[in-house]
Design a protein around this nucleic acid. Sequence first.
DNA 1: ATGCGGGTGTAATGTTATTACATCAATTGC
DNA 2: GCAATTGATGTAATAACATTACACCCGCAT
Lengths: 135, 135
Amino acid sequence: MNAPALTKNQSLVFDVLTKSDGPLSAYTILDRLRDSGFRAPLQVYRALDKLLEHGMVHRLESLNAFVACAHPQSSCCTGHGHGTVAFAICDSCGQVIEFHDHEVDHRLGDWARGRKFRPAKTTIEIRGLCEACAA
Amino acid sequence: MNAPALTKNQSLVFDVLTKSDGPLSAYTILDRLRDSGFRAPLQVYRALDKLLEHGMVHRLESLNAFVACAHPQSSCCTGHGHGTVAFAICDSCGQVIEFHDHEVDHRLGDWARGRKFRPAKTTIEIRGLCEACAA
DNA sequence: ATGCGGGTGTAATGTTATTACATCAATTGC
DNA sequence: GCAATTGATGTAATAACATTACACCCGCAT
């Protein structure tokens, strides 16, 4: 899944996320794009759906918010097998660290195989305090 | 954290969740408790907050819904260290399988230590198809 | 009896996400 | 050329999920 051409709305939404230093809610994105002509939530959600499909954006379930993928160039997001990304989210400063752990991925895969469960999408989110905020 | 005495509202909410065969949204719980005198969402959310604190109920972030803990008796939920529970959620039939994997837990703990990130709550949810539905 | 903490009841509001319907643009096949 | 199809868009309305604010009540320790 290589980077596809983005439509105008998709580009606008992706740019806002890329330029943000933290996760944004759909409605925050909407507000930031009012000047670019956005009027309704659906415009944001539609763009986000496509960006999520392409692996360019992640949804943080525990926050109901979205971030640009931190590893955009590589095979990370949708590439050769190691598809699951994990997040550490600082409850104090809002910083999000995206990472991947083969071992965890493999382990959960094993569990699924053992149960004959067919995974479609896996969410891993650690809420807590980052080094700076925990001090 | 042993089972504390529940208040009336907490018991009502817990009973509804226990009797349900799948996750329930807060508003579904509210509807089921109308006859018991519930009138407002807050009554449900307040009870859920306490039940979550006590580890008797889990929140499924990717579903905005709640389930009774599947391992109520044991040390599972809040006991000696292995605090993180994972869920496999069937997108077809809605069934939820709650499980724990020491390896995954340990691995994420290591990652956090390496980054000096202090975890407060970890969410692991696998969305997909259960054996019956995948067939 | 007074003050305090925790639980409760109610209303209003805030936040997140979807449905429904109309339009527009690019592509395909005839 | 021109329908038919497909995918993106615009707009309005509504649904679904969650919180804030305020008042009251009760048990209990001072």
